[in-house]
Amino acid sequence: MNLTVKFFARYREALGVDSVKVEGDFATVDDVRALLAKRDGADVLSEQNLMCARNEDLCQLDEPVSDGDEVAFFPTVTGG
């Protein structure tokens, strides 16, 4: 399974990239998060108030993923 993972704002800065491709057997968004959380600077992905999206819709960490999905991780949103 191949996925694109995007990071935004403080998470993007902590990881030093705005997007990565990942390959592996993932059942849920949380499986993707757990793999990436092992990277340098990726402690932010273990934050309690982390938000995530799958294919540009907000989701929970237990959201199932499919091949080709775009997953995103970001801190609490602060628009408005």
């Binding site: 935004f8 704002a9 403080r10 999206a53 907000l58 995103a72 970001f74 801190p75 949103v77 602060t78 628009g79 408005g80």
Partner: peptide
Amino acid sequence: MDYLKTRAPFWKK
């Protein structure tokens, strides 16, 4: 506004 503040992906620096 209440939903935008909590669900729309914007971040202020």
